[in-house]
């Protein structure tokens, strides 16, 4: 049994994952408990210990956590959780070796990975894409996250900061981003941008109904086009077998898949489009980050 944890900006999900990838005893708690704690890593260990005791989990092989941050190449150290901040507004985990803290507390192997990478691992397993050469997953939620599996291995940058697509400069864009830069992709293709569109153009429509009611209108079409560009860049330079489309935005009701795919195809390089690629849509499943974390731990242990 591997304990998988998915630490998000709002919730922390935890579960026990069997060797065949089945999630058991799933639980959820607010991330604020960690963000507000004097010792966030200690609080996290406390949450895990309570969960293990309450659910009488035995024979723990490893503990694996997905975090909304880049992770250093050691797969132990969180670089910076910009979306989880304490009361003083500081990122809760910044260059912290979280795996070491967990390992010292529980005396089992511990792993830390970027949450989106874990979700892609889940989606690959759930859609039986393990044997494909290149699988690219792009997840548009509040921000933009991405991960790429090449020949069964996740792409890793020199310092863990690869595929930060949300903060690539968007051509011709100069909107201010929450990161302090200007013109980041997230300013044009993200849940954050969708919220702005709603406030500006459709204040009377609930955000969950935006595609249902307004998908044929210019602001929404422009938004879809911006999202498509992000996917097209990745398709053009990686020539994937499959693109996994996921995150809160594509999982919204009546997300216009056909229009979106048409836009991606039109913006993708001609050579890649000679062969094309498949689209797979990530299914709504609250536990996928937890299962993905466990899959990552298993992958690390098998390759050790």
């Amino acid at each position: 049994m591997i304990i998988g944890i998915d630490l998000g900006g709002t919730n922390l999900r935890i579960g026990a994952v069997t060797s065949d990838g089945q999630l058991q005893a799933s639980a959820v708690t607010g991330s604020q408990a960690i963000a507000g704690a004097r010792d966030p890593a200690g609080e996290l260990c406390g949450i895990i210990a309570d969960y293990v005791e309450k659910n009488r989990i035995q024979d723990i092989e490893a503990i694996s956590i997905g975090v909304p941050s880049s992770v250093e190449a050691d797969k132990e150290t969180v670089i910076c959780t910009t979306n989880i901040r304490n009361r003083a507004g500081e990122p809760v985990f910044c260059h912290m070796n979280l795996a070491e803290k967990i390992r010292e507390h529980f005396h089992v192997p511990a792993f830390v990975n970027n949450d989106v990478k874990n979700i892609l691992l889940h989606d690959i397993a759930a859609n039986h894409l393990e044997d494909q050469k290149i699988v690219a997953g792009i997840y548009i939620g509040t921000g933009v996250g991405a991960s790429i599996m090449i020949d069964g291995r996740l792409l890793e940058g020199k310092d863990g900061a690869e595929l930060d697509l949300g903060h690539m400069p968007y051509f011709g864009g100069d909107a201010s981003c929450s990161c302090g830069k200007k013109g980041c992709c997230e300013c044009y293709a993200s849940g954050w941008r969708l919220r702005k569109i709603q406030e500006e153009f459709y204040p009377d429509t609930a955000i969950g109904e935006l595609f249902t009611r307004h998908r044929e209108e210019a602001p929404m079409k422009e938004f879809i086009r911006a999202c498509a560009h992000v996917y097209a860049v990745v398709a053009t330079i990686f020539n994937p077998d499959t693109i996994v489309v996921g995150g809160g935005v594509p999982e919204m009701a009546d997300f216009p898949r056909e229009v979106f795919e048409r836009e991606v195809n039109a913006c993708t390089g001609r050579d890649v489009m000679t062969y094309g690629f498949d689209y797979v849509y990530s299914q709504k499943h609250a536990g996928k980050g937890v299962i993905g974390a466990a899959l990552f731990a298993r992958m690390q242990m098998e390759s050790a």
């Binding site: 290149i134 020539n239 890649v272």
Partner: peptide, 11 residues
């Protein structure tokens, strides 16, 4: 890339 077309940044 899956069909050896990766890296076509010119496109």
């Amino acid at each position: 890339g899956s069909q050896r077309m990766a890296g076509e940044v010119g496109k």
